[in-house]
């Protein structure tokens, strides 16, 4: 690598840092109150990106191939720009989300809902919006929430989600009380063996809650012995152990009624359980979170992120088309 390139790269890094520092100071001082494009600007941006893609397609047809960094740049723009746009996106609620909501809305006030947080921060962008929306619905509809985690960081994610949910007006009006209306029993090692034991005895797996209070001192769970005392359960899952293990043990063996929220990567695998009636409903990825927010009439991060998500998908589709054009034009071995 030549030293001029290195100097140029370093200059770019320093430039980015300087701009960041200025913007950050602006945030602290209060003269940066966020950025928002007007509808006209938003529309112009969309049209410019579309024209650029069209140009790339034409160039590809002429046999000029683009580099992978161009693809990254476009995907980056498609994700970043919508955050500042004043466009609203219309989408509809899919049947699996509706089913999950229907089963939840049929519950009587005071019903006990078990929520298992089986994910960690890397999957939070997808699952956290679901967690917040679900907890918000439960706490504002007098459903009692029992939280556990089969992943060590799950209960921490739960606390973050609770914090967000408690900020909502409807929830705050109900003044939910820890130990009475909701409880976080924490993490337990043992994967599906934990679920198995919970089938006979919750207390043996969670003798104390997240903050060390003894199980029997928590009014909400004092009389909860096993799954037969749970009216509904919701599993937020990013892998193993997750929805598959819950279905195999808790649903099929102990007859627990269960809905699931999954990362998009594993959602397709869960449709088999949905079809066979082992799950009452399914939220798949950020899309699922947004639809759940729509059906519960609460705008949250899922909805907010959907514009970026849709833009990014359009860019990906555009590049799949461009890539295929390149493939058929230039034979097997030349690549983007």
């Amino acid at each position: 690598m030549s030293s001029t390139t290195r100097i140029r790269e370093l200059a770019v890094v320093i430039l980015i840092l300087v701009i960041s520092v200025i913007v950050y100071i602006g945030k602290i001082q209060g003269w940066n109150n966020g950025l928002m494009f007007s509808p006209a600007v938003s529309l112009t941006v969309v049209i410019v990106i579309f024209l650029l893609l069209l140009y790339i397609l034409l160039r590809t047809l002429q046999g000029h191939l683009i580099g992978r960094r161009t693809v990254f740049l476009f995907v980056g723009l498609a994700v970043v720009l919508p955050f500042f746009m004043t466009l609203t996106l219309k989408f509809r609620v899919s049947p699996e989300v509706q089913q999950l909501y229907d089963a939840l809305s049929e519950l009587q006030p005071g019903s006990k809902v078990l929520v298992s947080f089986d994910y960690d921060p890397p999957s939070a962008p997808e699952l956290q919006p679901m967690a917040v929306a679900f907890l918000r619905y439960c706490l504002s509809h007098d459903l009692k929430v029992i939280i556990i985690g089969l992943w060590p960081q799950g209960p921490q994610q739960a606390n973050l989600a609770l914090e967000d949910a408690l900020k909502s007006k409807e929830v705050a009006a109900k003044k939910p009380e820890y130990g009475v209306d909701y409880v976080n029993l924490g993490f337990q090692v043992g994967n599906e063996f934990v679920i198995q034991r919970m089938g006979t005895d919750f207390k043996s797996m969670f003798p104390k809650d997240y903050s060390g209070t003894v199980y029997d001192d928590l009014p909400l769970v004092r009389n909860v012995k096993n799954f037969s005392n749970i009216d509904y359960s919701f599993n937020l899952s990013a892998g193993y152990p997750g929805t598959q293990e819950w279905v195999q043990v808790a649903v099929d063996r102990y007859g627990l009624k269960m809905g699931a929220g999954n990362t998009a990567v594993q959602a397709p695998m869960m449709y088999t359980y949905l079809n066979a009636g082992q799950l009452v409903g399914l939220l798949g990825g950020m899309n699922g979170a947004a639809e759940f927010e729509l059906v519960t009439n609460e705008i949250g991060k899922g909805t907010k992120f959907m514009l970026s998500q849709s833009f990014a998908h359009m860019i990906v589709i555009a590049f799949i088309i461009i890539g295929n054009v390149a493939y058929f034009k230039s034979g097997r071995k030349k690549k983007l």
Binding site: V79, P125, G285, F305, H313
Partner: peptide
Amino acid sequence: MSRMSLLIG
């Protein structure tokens, strides 16, 4: 979709 969500996050 999943990877995009992570990027969006």
